[in-house]
Amino acid sequence: MSAITSYVALGDSFTEGLNDHLDGDRYRGWADRLAETLAAREPGFRYANLAVRGRLIGQIVSEQVPQAEALAPGLVSLCAGGNDILRPGSDPDAVAAQLDGAVARLRATGARVLLFTGFDIRQVPVMRLVHHKVAVYNLHIHDIAARNGCTLVDLWAMNVLRDRRAWSEDRLHLSADGHRRIALRAAEVLGLPAAEDWREPYPPLDPAVWAEARREDLRWARSFLVPWINRRLQGRSSGDGVDPKRPELAPVAKDVA
């Protein structure tokens, strides 16, 4: 693998790093963790993260892709379209067409592009209703990656992410350990030596803990799912008024959660 001396991350909450908490309102996330790995190998490495929670693919294409083109990094990661796919009435084919156009623009800059499929979310209540749409979108992503010479992280195939401990309390965003495992997987597909094995299974879960989690389904729906649905019905986003956390290419200092 040729040296990667600069990296720009594009996307939504997944790439912003929710819910891999640092202090205050700051999040780390898989992209920051990957950048730390790259920085440890390349003196002078620089990193920007333009991802903002709640962004739809049209917003990512119009707001973030032009910034990435201007920054002209060696590596761009792009995970987009998930928020669109989860919306009622959305068309995976139309979302994929926007992703395809964005990838072509990024590849035209000479950047290596890292793409991601969607998660297998059938184990999450309500989300399983859009399971088939995610599957269709993933087929498009595989095709886009192959046609454009992109590197692909297949999140759907990461069985370890089906464990509830890979997810945070809201069941919509990864836990810190989920982000850690994806950073390891992304490093692996980029050809970097693995410091740890992302496949390492979680220890067996105490049946009492699992039973308690099932009793918490109603509380989860009330605290997280209903507000999420209401925002979409009202045309609002959790990212309204939120700016990218790393808008310019800059050196990386390792954050410790």
Rank of each mutant, 00 (worst) to 15 (best):
V113E: 00
D91I: 07
V130C: 08
G101Y: 06
A194C: 06
R181N: 02
G118W: 02
V124W: 10
L155Y: 13
R180M: 08
H140Q: 01
S77Q: 09
L139I: 07
H131D: 14
A166G: 15
A94Y: 11
A195T: 15
L192R: 05
P92L: 12
D177A: 07
A97N: 04
R87N: 11
L155F: 14
A104F: 04
G101Q: 06
L190F: 14
N138V: 12
R165I: 12
G82I: 01
G110V: 15
V126Y: 13
L106M: 07
C79V: 10
I85D: 04
T151W: 03
S175Y: 14
A111S: 15
G178S: 12
A146N: 00
L114Y: 03
L129N: 07
T109V: 12
A186S: 06
R128E: 13
R107V: 12
T109Y: 08
V153C: 01
H179C: 01
D84A: 12
L172H: 10
F119T: 08
R122Y: 11
H131I: 13
A195I: 10
V103T: 01
L152W: 02
H173P: 08
V76E: 04
G118A: 13
P125G: 09
I141Q: 04
M158F: 01
I182P: 00
T117K: 00
L75A: 08
L190G: 10
S90L: 03
V136H: 05
P125F: 14
E169R: 12
L152H: 05
A104E: 07
A135W: 01
S175T: 15
H131F: 13
D120C: 09
N159Y: 06
A102F: 02
A135I: 01
L139W: 03
Y137S: 04
C150M: 07
A176H: 06
L86A: 15
A157D: 11
I85P: 02
N83E: 08
R165E: 09
L152F: 06
D154P: 05
R162L: 15
T109N: 10
A146R: 00
G89P: 02
D177G: 02
E188A: 15
H131M: 09
R87F: 07
H179Y: 01
V113Y: 00
L174N: 06
V160Y: 09
W167F: 11
S77Y: 08
G149S: 05
D84Q: 09
Y137K: 04
R107E: 05
V103K: 00
A146L: 00
Y137F: 15
L155Q: 13
V113M: 00
L172R: 05
A187T: 05
L184K: 00
M127K: 08
L99N: 02
M158C: 03
I121M: 13
A183R: 02
G118H: 03
W167E: 02
G101T: 06
C79M: 14
A183G: 07
R87C: 10
D154T: 05
P88V: 13
H140E: 01
I85L: 08
A96L: 01
W167V: 03
G118E: 09
L99Y: 05
H140R: 03
G178P: 08
A194F: 04
L106D: 03
R87G: 09
N83A: 13
P92M: 12
D84Y: 08
W167Q: 02
V126Q: 04
R105I: 10
D177H: 08
A195P: 11
M127C: 12
V136Q: 08
